[in-house]
Amino acid sequence: MTEHPLNAVAAAERIGIHRRTLSRWLQSEGTSFKRIADEARFGVAKQLLADTNMSLAEISAALGFSEPAAFTHAFRRWTGTTPSSWREKLLEVERPCSSERTDGTRLPQRHRSRNRGRNRAGLINVQARSGKA
């Protein structure tokens, strides 16, 4: 994320309003800066868990948590499961659909020819479509 995590005061200053005004606006919308920040952290956490091989410690640091245990605690609060379990389940779901093997090599792709049923000139072969040879 950033070297200096964004807080409510900094966010209010960035948009040119007082922190209390920001809090009132967010409260009128039924939310808070903390809730929005947590949602953003959760979104980034899911993306990093799904799309990278970063360790939990690296993800924890990137999200600005004081230690990996704090990240695990927050993730469990968000999802009811640990980040490592969530990542494992995600990999189990994606594995059958993936074009990569567990050893990192790619599986052969099966492509249908765009010219199936067409002759060399690209015209539709009526005999091929009707099943007549």
Rank of each mutant, 00 (worst) to 15 (best):
T81I: 09
L107F: 14
R101K: 15
Q47D: 13
L49P: 09
F65I: 07
A62E: 13
S85H: 12
F42C: 12
E67A: 14
R76C: 02
R77L: 12
T52G: 08
R76K: 15
A50P: 00
A62V: 02
V93P: 00
K89S: 08
M54E: 14
D38K: 10
P108C: 01
L90K: 05
R95K: 12
N53D: 15
G80V: 04
A62L: 09
F65Y: 15
S98Y: 02
L48I: 04
A57K: 10
A70V: 05
E94R: 15
T102L: 15
L56Y: 06
G104E: 07
A69V: 10
T105L: 03
P108K: 06
R95T: 13
P83F: 00
A74V: 06
R76Q: 12
T79S: 11
V93H: 00
F71V: 12
D38E: 15
E92A: 12
L49D: 09
E67K: 09
D51V: 00
E94Y: 03
A62I: 00
W86Q: 02
E92Y: 01
R76I: 07
S66A: 15
A45L: 06
W86E: 07
P96N: 02
A69I: 07
K46D: 06
E58P: 01
S85M: 10
R87Y: 03
